[in-house]
């Protein structure tokens, strides 16, 4: 193959990679939106909005299947190397993680439906701040993937600690609300579940961040908690 042929072929492959990246971006944006909508439904005690969120999860699942199929086809046909190989293998992992984010959004929406029928908890403590940090991590992890920004990805990983601490704090806060207001036990339990799902979303955003670092720098940072990510000791008691 002459260099000119090679460059032409490569441009077509670049186009295919770009289309895949756009699909992944669409999937990630959908998942992020789902989390935001589910959290809004929790806040506004809106069971209908929650149900709409639950109904839309199928779109994310369909995107996951499409991304998986395209990625496998590209691996087979292009036999990618180096950066392209890392991108495609990580695309498979990232799409699986984003699909899980979608599932957690559904869990939160289900909590929202139950919360809409329960007596409210007077004080939700750090839950709003936790939601803000977790969704911010997700948004930035996606941005880091799009922009191949390893620094931003590292920053996402470092925020996971904070979410774990909020999770502990919400857990304790809800226990205390249950003691003070037995009528709010049902709602407080649901809030604990919302917090647990947010904590999981933050974990998945951290995974995305680690995957982006691998794509960009070919460095595996996973399980080297001291370097980039929080230590796992601080995981919430609820995280069983």
């Amino acid at each position: 193959m002459s260099p000119a042929d090679s460059a032409r072929a490569s441009r077509h492959f670049d186009q295919e990679l770009q289309e895949l990246r756009e699909l992944l971006l669409r999937m990630a944006s959908r998942a992020e939106e789902q989390v935001r909508n589910a959290l809004a439904a929790v806040k506004q005690r809106d069971a209908q909005a929650a149900q709409r969120s639950i109904d839309r999860d199928g779109e994310i699942d369909a995107l996951e299947l499409e991304i998986e199929e395209r990625t496998i086809n590209l691996l087979a046909r292009r036999q990618p190397m180096a950066g392209d190989l890392r991108t495609l293998v990580m695309t498979l992992k990232i799409s699986t993680d984003i699909e899980r984010v979608g599932d957690h959004a559904v869990n939160i929406a289900q909590c929202a439906k139950r919360l809409a029928e329960a007596l409210p908890v007077p004080d939700v403590g750090d839950l709003d701040r936790m939601a803000e940090v977790s969704t911010g991590m997700l948004r930035d992890a996606i941005a880091a993937f799009i922009d191949r920004d390893a620094e931003l990805a590292r920053d996402v990983c470092q925020r996971d600690d904070q979410v774990d601490r909020y999770n502990d704090s919400v857990f304790r806060g809800m226990l205390s609300e249950m003691t003070r207001y037995p009528g709010a036990i049902v709602a407080a339990l649901q809030m604990m579940l919302v917090a647990r799902n947010l904590e999981r979303i933050a974990d998945l955003a951290t995974n995305l961040g680690e995957d982006v670092i691998y794509i960009v720098e070919a460095r595996t940072v996973k399980h080297h908690a001291g370097e980039v990510v929080s230590d796992v000791e601080t995981e919430g008691e609820f995280d069983q």
Partner: peptide, 15 residues
């Protein structure tokens, strides 16, 4: 083939 150090190598092995 997974993580070459030189940009030139990367460009060659990725076509």
């Amino acid at each position: 083939f997974t993580a070459p150090h030189e940009k030139h190598t990367e460009d060659y092995v990725t076509g």
